[in-house]
Design a protein around this nucleic acid. Sequence first.
DNA 1: TGCAAAGTTGCAGTTAATGCAACTTTTGTG
DNA 2: CACAAAAGTTGCATTAACTGCAACTTTGCA
Lengths: 198, 198
Amino acid sequence: MAAVLGLRERKKADTRVAISRAALRLAIERGPDAITVDDIAAAADVSPRTVFNYFATKEEAILGFDPNRKVEVGRSVRERPARELPLTALRAAFVEIATGVPEVAEMSRARVQLVRDHPQLHPSYVAGYAALENALVEAIAQRTALDPEQSLYPRLVVSTAIAAFRVALDRAGPGRASLIAAIDEAFDALAGGLRPPR
Amino acid sequence: MAAVLGLRERKKADTRVAISRAALRLAIERGPDAITVDDIAAAADVSPRTVFNYFATKEEAILGFDPNRKVEVGRSVRERPARELPLTALRAAFVEIATGVPEVAEMSRARVQLVRDHPQLHPSYVAGYAALENALVEAIAQRTALDPEQSLYPRLVVSTAIAAFRVALDRAGPGRASLIAAIDEAFDALAGGLRPPR
DNA sequence: TGCAAAGTTGCAGTTAATGCAACTTTTGTG
DNA sequence: CACAAAAGTTGCATTAACTGCAACTTTGCA
């Protein structure tokens, strides 16, 4: 699994989650627009300048952007059995990420709720998923031996799978089972060519 | 078609495109980060304050966000023949929008290129499409008689179709034919369950 | 232990973004 | 045509996001 990290790396990771937890909590309590970066910094016990060393914008902090996520989910896709179809591998990778660490899953749910309550965040939220795209396109390109510059397929399957995952997250109720069910329903529909139900 | 608009409405529309054209041109010439709202305002011959009366952010001006677009494409979907499958209706609506007014299509192409050259814009660009989502979900809900609160399908088909359209736009070369071909390829793959090619 | 690398902080400066009030233009009605 | 109401534009003042830079502190490693 994860290599043991040095003290420096661990501290950085801690600081990142401290900032992002503080930002999320404050945004839920008071609303994203009613809090300042200074508030977040104070709550996370760092200087305001440090907040910007970790997150490019206030919204990224609130939504907990994590560059490592890209790497993780990319590796997860690459490590799926080679016989799996691209869509299947992507689905499995999303399930792994979304249900892996319970605490992460919980924060993820809280964010979905926050975005629901404050639609101004929706663009940034969607943008966060878009950041995954390139990493996943690379992984799918490897699995399928398709050149993403040549074939439209890798980018297409990735971006639609991400869209399906977002819809499933938005739909799921509390608990791991509900999330998995929603993901399954969305990806089954996708694999079935999106014919309307009934 | 479009009802004849009063002078006031026409002027507003003119101002909007003047601002957005100026912003796009300057962004292409100097890069999005190297231009200020004041620059855009000067080039469009309005006050900086007016820029913000039309666009919430500088990037929205550059990317030419247009709230009317939502309405148009929503209506376009609703007016497709009832026998068409949701995915088919969405595809046709996108083709209409993307190839309708040549000048609009050209600006759209220029923006795709701009985003390619300046990936910082990618999140906002994607976010712009996300804004279409609700309007299209409503249209599809009507066509299918599905309640989007109950069924996952309307939001799923819309958000994946938008993703497919973005990929097609990104892929298309110059000219209307190339764009239509790319859209067809993407939507055919989607309707076919996204099985890998070959 | 001590040097090099990396991370944190404060500070100064720019500019994006918003609210408000004054002013101008358009619309519609008598 | 006149003129009142409605809508749009502008300038001004203010806040807060964000950046670059240099000083300082902490960690990694020989």
